[in-house]
């Protein structure tokens, strides 16, 4: 019997610890597939964040380093500068990359650091139990915005990829979603391109992936996907936000 579907080689055998309905698992799988398809598992060093994906270093079959909260891109910079011929990527939540680590997000883009960053945006701090994130939508109820995010008090949702796309050193920036089979395939294409950009040594690549957090949103997994589609997608600029000239040929 021919085996037509299996675990990608880019993932270990360790079962994911994520909550039911959380889309981290889908994103992990996509990255695992890309690592395998590009044949770069043995050349890659991943950098994990603090947050729900803090244990992601167990799930990928490449070498992995756990960074302090928000510092994954600085750590990745250090690895890449030490080993320029390796593939280095960060896997970070929206709180990690778009709040406490924003300065690094801006500067790796400005420097054109030859790393790949995957940002998982679920509009909330998941690990700590559902607090407001910079990406939390206007009016969204969280434990630190119990009356809904008030723009007058807490400002507006931060669309990091849109900002990052303005920097010369950022050559590929995409915002995708994993809410449907079609969008999952799109997401995989974007992830793959972001790694190929690094293989070609072209500059910094960022893929933001809209993701769900049923546990802290207080919704079923199905309702979460619907909420992502109806509420989040209209707020964030989607698709390939920036494809620099040199990336178009890839």
């Amino acid at each position: 019997m021919q085996k037509v579907f299996g675990r990608p080689k880019g993932l270990t055998e360790i079962p994911f610890h994520y909550c039911p309905g959380c889309t981290h698992g889908i994103i992990h799988r996509l990255i695992g597939e890309v690592l395998e398809e590009l044949n770069i598992i043995e050349d890659t060093i991943g950098v994990a964040p603090v947050g729900c994906a803090g244990f992601s270093l167990d799930f990928f079959s490449c070498d992995f380093v756990g960074a302090a909260h928000g510092r994954a891109q600085a750590v990745a910079t250090g690895i890449k500068r030490a080993l320029p011929d390796r593939i280095v990527f960060t896997y970070q939540g929206d709180g990690d990359i778009a709040a406490i680590g924003t300065s690094h997000a801006i500067h790796v883009a400005a420097r054109g650091e030859k790393i790949t960053s995957i940002m998982v945006n679920n509009a909330i701090y998941g690990m700590t139990g559902g607090q407001m994130a910079p990406t939390t939508l206007t009016g969204q109820v969280t434990t630190t915005s119990p009356y809904g995010r008030d723009n007058g008090v807490a400002g507006f949702p931060l669309d990091l990829p849109k900002a990052i796309a303005t920097f010369d050193g950022a050559v590929y920036v995409a915002s995708v979603s994993v809410d449907s089979p079609k969008n999952i395939l799109q997401a995989k294409k974007a992830i793959k391109k972001a790694f190929r950009v690094q293989q070609a040594g072209l500059g910094f690549a960022l893929v933001s992936i809209l993701s769900t957090c049923p546990t802290n949103w207080g919704m079923s997994p199905v309702d979460s996907l619907k909420w992502l589609q109806e509420k989040m997608i209209p707020v964030y600029q989607m698709g390939e936000i920036k494809v620099a000239e040199e990336v178009k040929g890839l």
Binding site: I45, A68, A74, T77, G78, K80, A82, S103
Partner: peptide, 16 residues
């Protein structure tokens, strides 16, 4: 870009 970045870059380079 800052002292925090510098020490964490050291972290990455040492890990490598």
């Amino acid at each position: 870009e800052c002292e925090v970045a510098a020490i964490n870059m050291c972290f990455g380079a040492a890990a490598a």
